Computed example of a mutant assay.
Amino acid sequence: MAAAPEMRASDGDRDRVAAALREHVAEGRLTIDEFNERLEQVYQSRTYGELAKLTSDLPEIDLHRLPAASESVRRPHPARRDEKTRGSLKGAWSAWAAASAVSWMIWLLTMVTSGHMIPPWPMWVMGPWGVILLINTVSGRGGQSRRDT
């Protein structure tokens, strides 16, 4: 039985129209400003007729069967994951090298200005961090955490 336009709409009905409007924004049929205006009107609407007016110029969207293209956008491709891992490794090694360089410069300046030999403490900064990075690089895990695998 089709709902009469003067019949009162429920919160669920308003939520379904809001979800459809979000899909139309994602498809490029509505601008953000148009979406915001219509969304405000959605939650002020009281009847099915008022809700229908907000989407009358838009095609129907079945929210239970969204386009397959949206699914492929959400799933990462394996090749992209490899690129991401390489980028994570490169960033991690760059951070290690920068921190090591700064540590060695501080050690060198401290040793020169104090005038006596100071034990090379930067090795304690570089060593454990570098070993962990090396293990991750060799094992191929890169910047992935346990939750990502």
Rank of each mutant, 00 (worst) to 15 (best):
Y43K: 04
D11F: 06
V131P: 02
P78H: 09
V131C: 08
L63Y: 02
E71L: 14
D33G: 15
K90F: 13
R29M: 00
L39P: 01
R65Y: 09
R147T: 01
S70N: 06
E23K: 02
P128W: 10
S103A: 15
V125L: 15
P122L: 03
S114M: 09
K53Y: 00
V25N: 03
T55F: 00
W93E: 07
L51S: 02
T137L: 12
R80E: 15
S10F: 05
M105G: 11
S70I: 12
L134S: 13
D148P: 02
D82S: 09
S145T: 11
R86M: 11
S103D: 05
M111K: 10
I106L: 14
Q41T: 07
E34V: 06
L30E: 02
A3I: 04
T149C: 00
A9E: 01
Q144G: 00
V138N: 00
W104C: 05
V25A: 05
H77S: 12
V112N: 09
P67R: 08
S70T: 10
I118W: 11
G140D: 05
R14C: 05
R146A: 05
R38A: 08
F35M: 06
H77W: 12
T113K: 13
S94C: 05
L39G: 00
S100G: 15
A2D: 05
E27D: 15
A68D: 12
G49A: 06
W96Y: 03
T110H: 07
W104D: 01
D33Y: 04
R74F: 04
N136D: 03
W104S: 02
V73L: 14
E40D: 13
L108V: 03
G143K: 01
A92E: 07
Q44F: 12
G140A: 08
A9R: 02
V17S: 00
W96V: 00
S72F: 08
H24A: 07
G49K: 01
L51N: 01
G143S: 08
V25L: 15
M123R: 04
S139G: 05
R8V: 09
L39K: 06
E83L: 15
A18P: 02
S94N: 08
T47D: 11
G12Q: 13
D62L: 02
A18D: 11
M117S: 11
W124I: 14
I118M: 10
G127A: 09
A97S: 09
V131H: 04
M7W: 10
A2Q: 10
K90W: 12
A99Y: 04
S10Q: 06
A79D: 10
L30D: 00
E6Y: 08
A18L: 09
L51R: 01
T110Q: 15
G49N: 05
L39N: 12
R65C: 00
P76Q: 11
L66N: 05
P120Y: 05
P78I: 06
L109K: 04
R86Y: 08
A26N: 07
Q44V: 02
R81A: 12
E71H: 13
I118E: 05
G130L: 07
A26E: 10
S56Y: 00
N136M: 12
L39A: 13
S45I: 07
V42H: 00
D148M: 12
V131K: 07
G142W: 02
M7R: 10
E6F: 10
T47Q: 10
A2S: 14
P5R: 09
W93Y: 14
